[in-house]
Design a protein around this nucleic acid. Structure first.
Lengths: 131, 131
DNA sequence: CTGTATCCGTGCTGATACTG
DNA sequence: CAGTATCAGCACGGATACAG
């Protein structure tokens, strides 16, 4: 059982590198916006709350570079650009599912642990034996 | 098929939040160092190439807060502190496995796509039709 | 509509020095 | 050995203005 992030150089590039690529602030959300069907630039912009044009364009470019999405441009007036997941992109979604499932089940445990630590830290700050 | 990052607020917190927690520069590598057995601070420091004391301590604290690892301190001289994965942490490793498998299979495709794009970009910069 | 270009603040990170 | 404290650099991301 290992995820091989400190083994040989070749192994390290896999998970760590994948996270470096899709683990940023927006990529996952943008990908999620494309899950169901091809979708236009502005639609993504609306679907992904809070993203700026700059970041949306950057994220889409990155995903396109990695072969996870396709960009299709229609030279109409006004112009129209659609983005869709490639086969590779769809398979990534599938691979992410198990992690998603884990997160659904265990995020509560993580939050609880975090809250517990926070509470303990609070206690430490109280004057000892002030009863 | 969805990873629910733009759905209701409750869903969005799962995968995105998980990535926010373990998707940073070091967490995965530190976790990987703990996979096999309890391990001491300095051992991790050596196992995870390039990490600074500051980042190692921070990362360990974060993992401990999330309930993914346990810290055990032995008040010997010199002091000795061991870190180990909790049940939760070990289950996370399992969940990461499928993503790891995917990465192993497809990172080549992603790299290829990236290289292809880079080459295309090069072509665009060349003077057209100069034989 | 679909981007690009620029500026700028913030936060992450590494380096270094210090402590129990 | 196992951290903590402080500072400085830089990359990331946001806001805004502009372009095809």
């Amino acid at each position: 059982m290992s995820i091989g992030c400190n083994d040989e150089p070749g192994m390290c590039l896999s998970l760590t590198d994948l996270f470096a690529r899709i683990g940023d602030k927006w990529t996952l959300k943008v990908v999620d916006a494309l899950v169901h069907r091809p979708i236009r630039y502005n639609e993504i912009h609306q679907a992904v709350a809070g993203i700026s044009q700059r970041m949306l364009t950057r994220t889409l470019k990155g995903l396109e570079q990695d072969g996870l999405i396709n960009r299709t441009m229609y030279l109409t007036i006004p112009p129209r650009v659609e983005y869709e997941l490639t086969e590779l992109g769809q398979q990534l979604i599938v691979a992410l599912q198990s992690l998603y499932d884990w997160a659904l089940v265990h995020q509560q445990a993580m939050s609880a642990a975090r809250a517990n630590v926070a509470r303990t830290a609070q206690d430490e700050k109280l004057p000892p034996g002030h009863d």
